[in-house]
Design a protein around this nucleic acid. Structure first.
Lengths: 128, 128, 128, 128
DNA sequence: GTGGTCTAGACCACC
DNA sequence: GTGGTCTAGACCACA
């Protein structure tokens, strides 16, 4: 996994976001084992405590669970993962719409532009 | 005008972007006088040289022009402003679509969500 | 404030419990300023980070809130404090009842003994 | 029998308490033979000397007696067992009441809560 | 080898 | 001076 960290926001937050993206986008599937804290920390180039905090916070959110001695796993509650994905999508849509409106576009105008735009194929299952 | 500057990218670039946004969103109209460099620089809390560079670059792009004796003005070439707005919009749409696709959404799914979303009223004139 | 810490459970948990007791018992009133993290940490003889964690967790629970530069305060939501007190009371009652039942007492027998027992005066307001 | 031992208090004390609980709760009846020291020690995972001390102390209290040739037995003096149970109950009640009063409850409030609480059925015979 | 906790010490933003 | 974050390094329980 590749990590993109910037100094302008708490690192643990960025780690949480990127791990969440891995989960909601299906790169980490329900029930999958998450690599050990120390391994992820080394990968991301952060202190193990920082990664630990990110994982613990995701656990409080319900996206992960810990099996004390065997490691951390992605939740098997697909509806929770779906809910998180829908929330993230809603946030991004709101940001996007505001940004476009700032440029003087209306909702209808945006939809028209979007329909003309090209895009690679997504996962149909995600659009329930 | 309120300026949002961050230390992770060239300041003059951010100034250019925000001035461009002012122009394409109609907060600065074609032919409007742009405030003096020193005034803008003070407002933004940057060195006048930095603001000067941003304005000069926008001038090279054609969005501004200088009347040596009376100051800087927004271009009166509306088609150029429109072209810039369309370019910015296209970039934002591409970013947005990629980001949504990463979450597992298809173009059709995104359009559906967008149509359901609420948004304040935009300027119809902007959607030529 | 006097702190009682034992090595058999996480310290931050014990700190949370004792701070919670301070709040639900009215020794810290709604809106009261909580002493600075570093001061509490020194008082309790723990690392500031450990006290910080306890306070941050209480904040997530809603018992405290932070005013970024001026310090931490007890929530002014009295109903939340009441809810916590009722929960703690319910837990203690359950433990007590189980322990007494283990000794062979029935609920009626326990109530009878309790009525005979002596106790200092409590705060009537707490028994709404 | 399952033993719960912690490192923060003398082991023999904890053994005494748990054996006493067995007796006053009727899991060991008056006149019952107590298993051999070595067996109990093995069960509890403690040194036989430690278990021996616990049993000797209970014997001094009168809850056990030794028949030099056939082993240790629970006392047949039911009134002594009852007295011990009442003492333990009184202690637990006092602790409980203090703890609840600390939360701001009055004796009357506690009794009310207790009456509302649910509890499995106890042994009526124990409430003389 | 796993996650969990704790300490010590540092730096930052904010006002 | 306040809370917030991060690093480095250590120790623990558990299986």
């Amino acid at each position: 996994m590749q990590w993109q960290l910037r100094g302008d926001r708490p690192i643990y937050q960025q780690l949480m976001e990127q791990l969440t993206e891995q989960i909601v986008s299906g790169q980490l599937l329900p029930g999958d084992k998450v690599p050990p804290v120390r391994e992820l920390a080394a990968e991301a180039g952060v202190n193990p405590n920082t990664m630990q905090r990110a994982l613990a916070d995701l656990e409080r959110e319900g996206l992960l669970y810990t099996n004390r001695t065997s490691g951390r796993y992605v939740t098997e509650d697909k509806s929770m993962i779906d809910a998180v994905r829908e929330q993230i999508a809603a946030d991004r849509i709101a940001d996007f719409m505001n940004s476009m409106r700032q440029l003087g576009f209306t909702k209808e105008g945006i939809v028209k532009l979007l329909e003309k735009s090209s895009m690679g194929e997504g996962n149909e299952d995600a659009n329930k």
